[in-house]
Amino acid sequence: MKVIFLKDVKGMGKKGEIKNVADGYANNFLFKQGLAIEATPANLKALE
């Protein structure tokens, strides 16, 4: 799943980066902790 990092995550990515991560990792950790959001077309447009 493609995500946009909202904060730096050690060993994974930096704020503003777009990366592919495992679905479970994104849903169970990154999204719940507020560290990333899904890289949807609307979210990608908002990032620009």
Rank of each mutant, 00 (worst) to 15 (best):
K10F: 15
N27K: 15
E48M: 12
F5Y: 06
D8F: 05
K32W: 10
A42G: 10
F29P: 05
F5N: 00
T40P: 04
K7S: 10
K2H: 10
N43Q: 06
N28W: 07
P41A: 12
Q33F: 15
M12H: 14
K10I: 12
P41F: 09
L47E: 07
N28H: 12
M12T: 07
L6I: 11
M1A: 04
L44S: 05
K32G: 12
A39D: 02
A36F: 01
G13L: 01
E17N: 02
N27F: 15
I4K: 04
E38N: 03
D23Q: 15
G11V: 02
K19P: 00
K19I: 11
G24C: 11
A36M: 03
Q33E: 12
M1Y: 07
G24A: 13
N28L: 09
G11I: 02
A42Y: 05
Y25M: 13
I18N: 02
L35Y: 06
K14F: 12
E38W: 06
K19N: 03
V3G: 00
A46F: 12
E17V: 04
I18T: 06
N43L: 06
A26Q: 06
A39E: 02
K45H: 10
A46V: 11
I4W: 01
K15G: 03
K10H: 13
D8Y: 04
A22L: 13
K32M: 14
Y25E: 09
G13I: 02
G13A: 14
A46D: 11
E17C: 07
F31R: 04
A22M: 12
K32Q: 13
G11W: 06
Y25G: 06
G13F: 08
F5V: 01
A22V: 09
T40N: 09
A36G: 04
N20R: 13
A46T: 10
K7F: 13
L47T: 07
K14N: 10
N43Y: 05
A36H: 00
P41N: 10
P41V: 11
N20D: 13
V3S: 00
A36R: 01
A26S: 04
K7G: 09
V9L: 06
F31V: 10
V9E: 01
E48S: 12
E17I: 03
L6M: 08
K14C: 13
G16N: 13
V9W: 05
N43C: 08
I4H: 01
A26K: 05
N20I: 15
Q33S: 11
F29I: 14
D23H: 15
K32P: 15
F31N: 04
I18V: 14
G34S: 07
F31G: 05
A36P: 00
A26H: 05
L44F: 02
T40I: 05
M1E: 02
K19G: 07
A42Q: 14
V21D: 01
A46Q: 13
K7L: 08
D23V: 15
A22H: 12
F5P: 00
L30P: 02
K2C: 15
G34L: 08
N43T: 06
N27G: 09
A46N: 10
